[in-house]
Design a protein around this nucleic acid. Structure first.
Length: 292
DNA sequence: AAATAGCTCAACCGCTCCACC
DNA sequence: TGGTGGAGCGGTTGAGCTATT
């Protein structure tokens, strides 16, 4: 058993922390602050390594920690951010005040396990019909569908859902097409999805939900293309608003070169000369982010 | 009631990055 | 410039709890 170099001293305790140990660590940190974690155990009278103290403080003892279940808004944000930044848990946690990377990672892993289990289960007969989207109109050159309408009519309100509100979840995915992009829209507790195959001749607008953390309180009528800027600038991610202009599809494709965007939108508006062919699948295996 | 399968989540491990010398 | 140590990160583990058989 190779122990970490910081934990090689004798008498180093491991495993769960006792209330007495917690009290010692809290007392020390609140009176002295934290500078060098490797000095903390000795000064606080703990038989732990500094690394263990740091983890205990950051993940459990610090006063601004938030406990309890994730709210639906937090869940959505985690899923959205994961679609953008992948397994960068600390980055995701920085967008959820009081939540730790560890907590988010645990949440995601258990969520993913659930989804995988469901995807390997036989398709449910209650899934809404794949070819019937009565709310979707096909004007000669415009396809428009409004997610909220879709949800309120297609999803029985009593059905158990992952989120407390209907999941307005759209995925922009270019993995399965060479020069186009797929817009996937999930419903029915994410067990089913509708897919629109788009090409370069289509334009896409996405209406951000008014509660979205991405909008920073912006007008919910603002169309937000999922452009990522300043990813490496102090770890901050910003989404740029492009003044309600529909994005050319190749801009979406360009955006999706390296990642699949996995964002929640209230409304997706697709325009183009050609009909965007809708299809559906009940197989979740094809619908996860690439980082799975 | 007992066994066991499944789940949660706190904690650990190994690694990278970075500052400092 | 290479070595060293601390901080931080993501992957993984396993104890303990809950649900199911």
């Amino acid at each position: 058993m190779g122990h970490h170099s910081c934990c090689n001293q004798q008498k180093v305790k491991r495993g769960l922390w006792s209330p007495e140990e917690d009290e010692k660590l809290i007392r020390y940190i609140t009176t002295h602050g934290y500078g060098c974690w490797s000095e903390v155990p000795e000064k606080a009278g703990l038989q732990r390594c500094g690394k263990s103290c740091r983890l205990r403080w950051i993940n459990y003892l610090r006063p601004d920690i938030r406990r309890g279940r994730f709210t639906p808004e937090e869940e959505k944000l985690i899923i959205s951010l994961h679609g953008v930044v992948g397994n960068r848990w600390a980055h995701i946690a920085s967008h959820l005040p009081g939540r730790t990377d560890n907590e988010i990672k645990n949440y995601w892993n258990s969520w993913i396990k659930k989804k995988i289990r469901k995807s390997s289960a036989p398709p449910k007969t209650t899934a809404y019909p794949p070819t019937h989207h009565p709310q979707i109109n096909f004007p000669s050159n415009q396809l428009e569908f409004v997610n909220q309408n879709l949800m309120s009519t297609a999803i029985p309100s009593h059905r158990e859902t992952l989120f407390s509100s209907p999941p307005p979840l759209f995925i922009f995915d270019r993995r399965n097409t060479l020069d186009g992009i797929q817009v996937r829209q999930h419903g029915d507790n994410l067990n089913t999805e509708s897919i629109w195959n788009l090409n370069q001749h289509h334009q896409v607008q996405a209406l951000a939900p008014s509660t979205s953390s991405f909008t920073g309180g912006m007008d919910s009528n603002t169309y937000l293309p999922p452009l990522i800027e300043n990813m490496e600038d102090e770890g901050e991610m910003t989404l740029e608003c492009l003044q309600r202009q529909p994005l050319e599809l190749n801009e979406w494709v360009e955006y999706s070169q390296q990642i699949s965007s996995f964002l929640f939108w209230d409304n997706i508006n697709i325009q183009g000369e050609e009909e965007a062919l809708p299809s559906t699948s009940s197989n979740m295996a094809t619908s996860f982010p690439t980082s799975l």
